[in-house]
Design a protein around this nucleic acid. Structure first.
Lengths: 256, 256
DNA sequence: TAGGCTCCATTGGTCGTACCATTATGACGG
DNA sequence: CCGTCATAATGGTACGACCAATGGAGCCTA
């Protein structure tokens, strides 16, 4: 005959999952607050009446979710992490990395995001923030104009600029998406910044956009954004085709 | 011939991370394709010259990221998963669960997303898709009008409707975001569908929107979308305040 | 006393082994 | 031909041991 019916098989598959879920629940329900330290693995092992391996797997899973942070040594252990927008964006990045996504898709989405954020940033961003945005844009331009720009520092500044922009919309979702896109973009392989002409135009355009935002001119800002992404698209077409120079975009450029 | 993948032994700290990274890289670079089976834990243990616990932690991490799937028993093991939009949305859900996010933020983002997708869907969606969208909207309306709507089936239909809508934009990023939002919404607690008046108006509005999309009338569609979210916002205000009925929105409603 | 040094307890990280639970497969027998 | 059972492969769990890093207590020296 078949097996006898098992009542309440508490082994819901894997014990590690169960442990992880319990701790995760405790964190989400604020029974454990950011900064709190969980018991050591050896204590948890006794508490959950299980082996240390199971505890370790559970903790690693939580660490993967950026829910905890693990330190070695005396007074080490698992500490509940602060919620940060920066720590939650990996899944999109992974998605972009695995799915051979066309740069056009990325650019299209990025532009739509920028266009959505712009009016919000103008309406909700403080004067100080607008000033900071403009200041960063000028920094970026200055950095771009150098003979040998530090690509590392440059990417960082570009990242900050975009993130600041998203923050000004006063909606954490935009911030989250923007961060995830940053990762996606940088992990993507088209390093257009290597082209000096693109660099210069981008920096100049950023300044114009920040200026328009500071002045509270949404249409101007949107115009610059359109210009930027149109240029980006054209550049991609060129890379796919021959190596012709950038066309005379300045003629069609948004009025300053 | 059989593909052989060379994994380098690991000497650095965090051996588990290292192993996970190597396998992840192999997956992303398509050296391992969906459906492929990784060597058993005991084999990997030898290949990486490490202990089985380390291998297990690495595999659990990859499983967490939905990169692999693990089966027990003979011919079990770790299998590379298919990339699905559906499997990547957990981080947003977690984000929303931890950060007590205002429904307003969700709604605002959701509306901006809808408004962005609309013209794309009209331009790129096939006639068949538009027909399907309208058909689903009518199904939804029919379901809503029943005395005792099956909330389960209803939520599912609403989900399909939104997802179809996002698909018509022909950009996987929109699809992904939409899916993530679905999770976020459903994990959020405001079950507005319990209000019969809201249900009816929502269903009617969906039909109007789908109709406008099918007719290729972006402005009409956007108008209906505006109406929908304005109503949603008003409902939230009411819930926060007293229990007054919905105002006369129909007067300001978009022309049909 | 101040500054540094050493030792040591704590704790995560790794390793190895043994055993259990589940599952596919093939051998066996009716 | 079909069901049943043994078997091997494989993940899941447990236990025990040791290593490596870390921070602090206590000691030593100038």
């Amino acid at each position: 005959m078949k097996r006898t019916i098992q009542f309440a098989p508490v082994n819901l598959g894997r014990a590690g999952e169960e442990v992880a879920l319990q701790i995760e629940a405790a964190i989400i329900e604020r029974q454990l607050e950011p900064g709190d330290r969980l018991p050591s693995e050896r204590e948890l092992q006794v508490h959950f009446n299980t082996s240390r391996g199971v505890i370790r797997e559970a903790l690693q899973a939580l660490k993967q979710k950026s829910l905890i942070e693990i330190k070695k040594g005396a007074k080490g252990g698992a500490f509940v992490r602060e919620v940060e927008v920066a720590t939650v964006g990996e899944s999109l990045a992974l998605f972009i990395k695995r799915q051979p996504m066309s740069p056009y898709h990325l650019i299209e989405f990025r532009e739509s995001l920028d266009r959505t954020i712009t009016p919000l940033a103008i309406t909700r961003g403080s004067a100080a923030e607008k000033e900071e945005l403009l200041s960063k844009a000028k920094d970026l331009e200055r950095l771009f104009l150098q003979q040998e720009p530090d690509m590392e520092q440059l990417a960082e500044l570009d990242r900050e600029l975009n993130l600041k922009f998203a923050q000004m919309a006063r909606n954490p979702i935009f911030e989250w998406i923007m961060h995830a896109l940053q990762i996606g973009f940088s992990s993507s392989d088209f390093n257009l910044y290597n082209r000096a002409d693109y660099r210069n135009k981008t920096a100049e355009n950023w300044r114009h956009t920040a200026q328009a935002i500071a002045e509270g001119e949404p249409l101007k800002a949107l115009s610059h954004i359109s210009y930027h992404y149109a240029m980006l698209l054209q550049l991609l077409e060129l890379e796919a085709g021959d190596g012709v120079e950038i066309q005379e975009w300045t003629a069609k450029s948004a009025s300053e």
